[in-house]
């Protein structure tokens, strides 16, 4: 095969992915960027290079608050999900007999099979004043009055964690089962105890799985609208909720696009931070 033929064949294999990325990422991104620089004159969209939307956003306290709320919720969800998912993945990978692992994994991802919206409303009922959680706590005599759990940040975080623990469990489990048992044996032979083996051998080797899941969690969580809308009770708004408000009545796509660019900027900064401090290049 000549070099030219190989090059053409290489481009042929690459073309579908390039076209896909171009059609469903690059072009929409450019359109969104251009839209954020347009303005609305009544109902008429005026294309241009105006920074009015960004100036408008810079002057609004609600946006700064929405960014803070989004980041606080997302970081909490990511941290809690990792802390819960890692032991679960560990147990499935090392404590559950191999013949049962598939079944246990299936059970772990069972909640994925229900509708995201239905699951969120189910949590609303579980966390209600007369819901299962409050009834149980009161039945055990731990509280005298029902706690306010629904329509709070706690409810939003709970709904998110329920979803993302499943996702993280899968990514971490996939990483754990690929590790050769020889690493652990070698560490033990060299005198390391179980904790030292985990701390200095297993954890560093499974960091790529953790980081992949954590970054997916971060991206999906910060861009989610449904969960905070249903479970958070709108007592504080995230950036996606503010975007939806711009679209609902006024259909202010330029302002919504500017907000979306801001959201993308946050995700990009998060990625760069992870790449710098958490060695994302190892993934």
């Amino acid at each position: 095969m000549s070099a030219q033929t190989a090059t053409i064949r290489g481009w042929g294999f690459l073309a579908p992915a390039v076209l896909w990325t171009l059609a469903f990422f690059i072009v929409p991104f450019v359109v969104m960027g251009a839209m954020s620089l347009a303005t609305l004159d009544g109902r008429t969209l005026v294309w241009g290079l105006s920074l009015d939307n960004y100036r408008e956003l810079a002057g609004q306290a609600y946006l700064a608050r929405a960014i803070a709320v989004s980041l606080e919720i997302t970081l909490t969800v990511t941290l809690v999900s990792v802390l819960l998912a890692y032991p679960l993945a560990w147990i499935i990978a090392y404590r559950v007999p191999p013949r049962w692992q598939r079944l246990v994994l299936l059970l772990a991802i069972l909640p994925f099979w229900t509708s995201y919206v239905v699951r969120s409303y189910a949590w609303l009922l579980v966390l209600a004043r007369d819901g299962v959680v409050n009834q149980t706590l009161m039945g055990l005599g731990l509280i005298a009055e029902p706690l306010t759990l629904a329509n709070t940040r706690f409810a939003t975080v709970t709904g998110f964690v329920h979803f993302f623990v499943m996702l993280l469990t899968l990514t971490i489990y996939a990483n754990l089962v690929q590790l050769s048992p020889n690493y652990r044996k070698a560490a033990m032979d060299l005198g390391a105890n179980a904790f030292q083996t985990f701390r200095h051998v297993i954890l560093p080797l499974t960091l790529p799985g953790i980081m992949t899941g954590a970054f997916l969690t971060f991206v999906l969580c910060i861009g989610d609208y449904i969960t905070p809308q249903i479970l958070g009770g709108n007592t504080e708004l995230t950036v996606p909720q503010v975007i939806m408000v711009q679209l609902g009545r006024r259909a202010d796509f330029p302002l919504a696009a500017a907000l979306a660019i801001v959201l993308m900027g946050i995700v990009t900064l998060a990625y760069l931070a992870m790449a710098r401090w958490l060695r994302l290049d190892r993934l």
Binding site: Q60, A61, Y62, R65, A66, V69, N234, T235, E236, L237, V242, V245, R249, R250
Partner: peptide, 14 residues
Amino acid sequence: LDIEMQDLWLNTLQ
């Protein structure tokens, strides 16, 4: 006025 009302609403919610 709609824009002002919506901004007031969002700021109040936050």
